[in-house]
Design a binder for these strands. Sequence first.
DNA 1: CCAAAAGTGTTCTACCTACACCCATGG
DNA 2: CCATGGGTGTAGGTAGAACACTTTTGG
Lengths: 257, 257
Amino acid sequence: MNPKQQVEQLAKEINSYIPGMSIDCVLLGYKEGRMHVLVLKFKNADHWALPGGFIKKDEDMELAAQRVLFSRTGVTIPFLKQLRAFGTVNRRQINKFYSPIDYLPFPQAIKDFFNERFISMAYLALVNPETFVPVPDDFSEVCEWHPIGEVPYPLIYDHADMIDYAQQYIRQQIKYQPMGFSLLPERFTMNDLRGLYEAVLGHELDRANFQKKILKLEILNRHEKQMSGGAHKAPYLYSFNVEQYNKTLEKGLGFIS
Amino acid sequence: MNPKQQVEQLAKEINSYIPGMSIDCVLLGYKEGRMHVLVLKFKNADHWALPGGFIKKDEDMELAAQRVLFSRTGVTIPFLKQLRAFGTVNRRQINKFYSPIDYLPFPQAIKDFFNERFISMAYLALVNPETFVPVPDDFSEVCEWHPIGEVPYPLIYDHADMIDYAQQYIRQQIKYQPMGFSLLPERFTMNDLRGLYEAVLGHELDRANFQKKILKLEILNRHEKQMSGGAHKAPYLYSFNVEQYNKTLEKGLGFIS
DNA sequence: CCAAAAGTGTTCTACCTACACCCATGG
DNA sequence: CCATGGGTGTAGGTAGAACACTTTTGG
């Protein structure tokens, strides 16, 4: 599609969306020992943004978030949670993005839609970055992972706040929810898992005690040893056992401090 | 205001609200040893609802929730938190409320506004019920407290889900946040506080251990004994110490199971 | 002086932390 | 055979659960 066709397409679609309400997704992945967040860079502008979109009038809000993420990743994300709505009046005045809307001959209907005051629902999604190659949307030229502590500047509007909120959220919740398993490959070593917890919590964990605590939860399958290339004892591989997890969930999970 | 004036007033106001988005408040109070929720009964209909409203186009979402609550209670609620958005397409088909909109000669603008698909942001508010007398809104004839486990039937739409969600939320959060102090009078006995925790958690707590745990948090001021009428040792009165709480918050609160 | 409720102390247990020890592997 | 990293064991400390004991008050 050329830009003109895109605009026509958008003009057609714009009326099928709920006005004044958007969705932004904090998609987090674990890569190279650190937490990363997926961000987009706009065409012809040094502004970055979270993947976002709008809600169709006949579409569940949850599905809208899935659709937004699918169009950037090509995969359906199992771990998807509402974070919170960002609803101050001036939130789009902060780090304002001068979008193509402002200076290109878009139809008035589109300009009106975008210039309304917007409340945005922030979603958190967790994923293993190796499972797909991110693709930019029509307005972006780059779509890539950045370490969560080193996001590019400026992020439009209050998107940096959303990322901060997401980081706070997973830091609290990883103690009670098995988030780790959404971020790792199906099979992983105890070292991988501990590295992830350390990355999320921001501090080191005792190797021996971590292992014991995790194993006591009884939500892992232990598989045969991998034959590693290292000159040392090869570690076990583990995978997440969903049925066991659902059983033990009732008793309540312990937690990792 | 007579009904006709109300309608005219509403017609004027309707355009100042964000369409397609509403706010519903789960206002909880602690009364007679049990948690209660504030609900409204519509005029000429056996339907109940949470206090709700809409967001003005130039109003922060948070303030809209405060405004809704203020108009029912006459007080500003210090404890107010977003719960989550309820955003399925069919949420207003469940326990549908046949409102006056449906059968009275309202202006078309109002009917259109109400008949749109709505996403609702649910808020949680905690309050001591003794601090005000609830007042119904223009469409309601009753506004009163009901025990949270015995809400009247039917609640419109998904309002029962909102209450359930709120109950789950406070059950988890009371372990980490000092919610109790929003629900009690300024001065209270340890018995009062424990009764509240038992009401929220749904099970009894050991008297001696509860006292020690709470006191160890060092967020209470102990005052002189009240002279009770009982034939027994008079209990201390306590009050919540906000400054101490903010200090100890950094270390992280312990929790009450 | 007694009953009732409030406040405090004691014991037992479970778990968490820190660290030591042993094991497997490849060079 | 040894350096490296993985797996497990152990001692000490801390905190929670259960329950006993003491204190205060009005009748």
